[in-house]
Amino acid sequence: MKNIFFKSTLFTIVLLFFACSDTDNLVIDNVTDNTTSGGILRTLEESTDLPIGLPDSAVHLLLEIQDAEDGNLSDKINVYASFTDIVNAGTNNRDEVLMGTIPSSAFILGNRLPQAEVNVTLVELQTALNLTSDDFTGGDRFVIRVELVFKDGRRWSNDNASQTVLGNLFLNSPFVYDANVICPVPEDYLVGNYLMEKTSAEEDPFFPAFGQAFSSTGQIVNITASGSQRNFEFSYYPDPLGTQTGQTDPGFASSYNMKLTFLCGNIEALGTIMTGSLGCGSGSIGQKNAIPPSQYDLSNDTVVIVNILDFEPDGGCDTGNYPVTLRFTKQ
């Protein structure tokens, strides 16, 4: 565990050096140099909320096409959609269908690399998936999947991308996007500076060697809003050496992003490393919401409780997950 974390930390430092260089080209060079055997679709813009009762709502993605020859290997992007009936336990589920294809002739020239826009309306999703307005409600989900197709016929999507690509916020190439049918949330709800504290007793599988993954003394996080989603950056494994009794190594203070999605009473959570990797050789440790998910109350955002599963996934450490309760207190 120690050696894996140490190597990952060095990689993070190298990646941050490129990311903080003077021009965006250096970022592109760094990513492209590491994708010579395949291709990625880096997400530059993402709007995936589908407010219930607004048929004109749509999914919008702006994707940057990256391959070993600055996009010249890429022929087209296929866009697929499926539907998950969460509220009615799968009664109206729909299998994936092809929504359309974006040929390379429709790519837009960006900062040296080509870009492509994906725009799919709720009406188009309903038509393609044979859904009436009575077949879905707030809390259900459409799933958009994109696939990059090379001129030689090779295809790249979530089924053959590495965990380093899928789980890295810097590369930001998940290939799959959840388009949630939402109940509107006020723009100022759970926004601003909050004290995030771990209030549950159970510790991570490697405690106390590396300190606490989530500090019980807390850290201030700045939460920003984007539709029904809330995002904030936090320090994972932040404890300096000597903080915890029995701690033998310093905390690794890896920068993570937590995305909270409000789904008609439920809070979904997704924690992702922002740069580099942190794990035991198979992707990075992450976080997801507990089952059942936490609830939210729009009349009170002074104190909000979110239950998550840490080590989900466990980054190849073979530890499994464990439950964490986080308390957010408005500052």
Rank of each mutant, 00 (worst) to 15 (best):
P238Q: 01
G211T: 12
I285F: 11
W156D: 00
S226K: 08
T302W: 08
E64Y: 10
S82Q: 09
V165F: 09
A290R: 13
V14D: 00
T325N: 05
F17R: 09
N34I: 00
R94E: 00
Q247W: 06
N25H: 14
R42A: 02
G167R: 06
V149G: 02
N180S: 07
P186N: 04
G139F: 09
G39C: 10
L263W: 07
Q229C: 07
D249T: 05
R112W: 11
Q212C: 06
N130W: 05
D318E: 11
F214G: 02
L16R: 03
T32L: 10
T101P: 01
I77F: 03
F142H: 09
G139Y: 01
V146C: 07
N160T: 10
T164I: 02
E117R: 14
V31R: 05
F17D: 02
T43Y: 06
E147H: 07
N307S: 13
S228M: 11
K76N: 11
M258G: 05
Q287Y: 12
N289D: 13
Q229M: 12
S105E: 11
M196H: 06
I273G: 06
R145L: 10
L15A: 13
I65S: 00
Y80C: 01
P174W: 04
S215R: 06
I13Q: 08
T261E: 07
D188T: 15
S157D: 14
D134C: 01
L260E: 03
N25C: 01
N321C: 13
Q212E: 12
F150V: 00
V149E: 04
V123S: 13
N72G: 10
L171T: 02
E64V: 02
Q212L: 05
N168Y: 14
Q219P: 06
G242F: 08
E187S: 13
P174L: 01
V303M: 14
Y236P: 01
D314H: 10
T137V: 15
T43V: 12
A179I: 03
D67S: 04
T23C: 02
S37L: 12
C317F: 09
Y322R: 11
L309K: 11
L61I: 05
E69H: 14
S105N: 07
E203P: 00
E45G: 01
P51D: 08
A116D: 06
G153N: 01
K76P: 05
A19H: 15
I267S: 01
T121Q: 06
R94Q: 02
G246F: 15
S133Q: 15
Y80H: 07
Q295V: 13
G71Q: 12
V191F: 03
